[in-house]
Simulated assay, not measured.
Amino acid sequence: MSSAELARYGIRVNVVAPGFVETPLDRELRIREGLAVFSERTPMRRSATIDEVANVFLFLASDESSYVNGSTITVDGRHLANASEF
């Protein structure tokens, strides 16, 4: 079923699409694999924090997002849209 079909039952369907998230594992992999360049291609020049991504989920679970349905929220500091420009 789609988000439109589920809406009549009070069910909202949304997607959170995080980009790079700063975690101990992420930090280790970036150092080992030399992947620091990815944050350089992000306009915000850094990875997201775990809390920044979690806050999007909290928003979607709250009453403040009661009319948000069928949406994809990208939490990547604009990395994907900007990466092709480098």
Rank of each mutant, 00 (worst) to 15 (best):
T42A: 01
L35P: 10
I31T: 15
V56Q: 02
D63M: 03
M44P: 11
E33N: 15
I11L: 02
V75Y: 00
N14L: 03
V75E: 02
P43F: 09
S39V: 05
E64S: 11
A4F: 13
A83L: 01
L35I: 02
A36R: 10
F20G: 10
S62P: 03
V37F: 14
F57G: 02
R27E: 14
F59S: 07
E85Q: 08
R41F: 03
R45L: 12
E64C: 09
A48H: 07
T74M: 05
G34T: 06
E5D: 04
R45N: 11
R8W: 08
R41C: 09
G19Q: 06
D76F: 00
E28F: 13
N55G: 12
M44C: 12
Y9G: 06
I73W: 10
E28G: 01
E5V: 04
F86K: 10
F86T: 05
M44H: 12
V56C: 01
N55C: 08
T42W: 06
E52A: 09
V16P: 00
P18D: 04
F86M: 13
R32T: 13
L29Y: 12
N55E: 08
G19K: 03
M1L: 14
A4T: 15
S39G: 11
V56P: 00
V56S: 00
V15I: 15
P18V: 00
E22G: 11
R32G: 13
F86S: 07
Y67S: 12
L58G: 03
P43N: 03
E5P: 08
S62F: 10
Y67K: 13
V68H: 05
V13W: 01
R32S: 09
L80F: 04
A7W: 07
E28M: 06
P43A: 11
S71H: 14
A54H: 10
E33F: 06
D26Q: 13
L35C: 00
Y9M: 15
R30E: 07
R30S: 02
S84E: 11
V15T: 05
P43L: 04
V15G: 07
V56H: 07
T42K: 08
R46M: 08
V21Q: 13
A7S: 15
E64A: 09
R12H: 05
S71E: 15
A4W: 15
V56F: 07
S66A: 13
D26I: 03
N55L: 09
R78T: 15
R8M: 05
R45K: 05
D51M: 08
T42R: 09
A81N: 09
L25H: 06
A83S: 12
G10K: 01
L58I: 12
T72C: 10
D76C: 05
G34S: 06
V56D: 04
P24M: 10
A7D: 07
A7M: 01
T49Q: 03
E85V: 09
A61W: 00
G77L: 05
E64F: 10
R8D: 07
R78C: 11
D63W: 09
E22R: 13
R30Y: 14
T23L: 08
L6S: 04
P18N: 10
F38L: 12
R27V: 13
R41V: 08
E22Y: 13
V13N: 09
A7E: 09
T74S: 06
R46P: 06
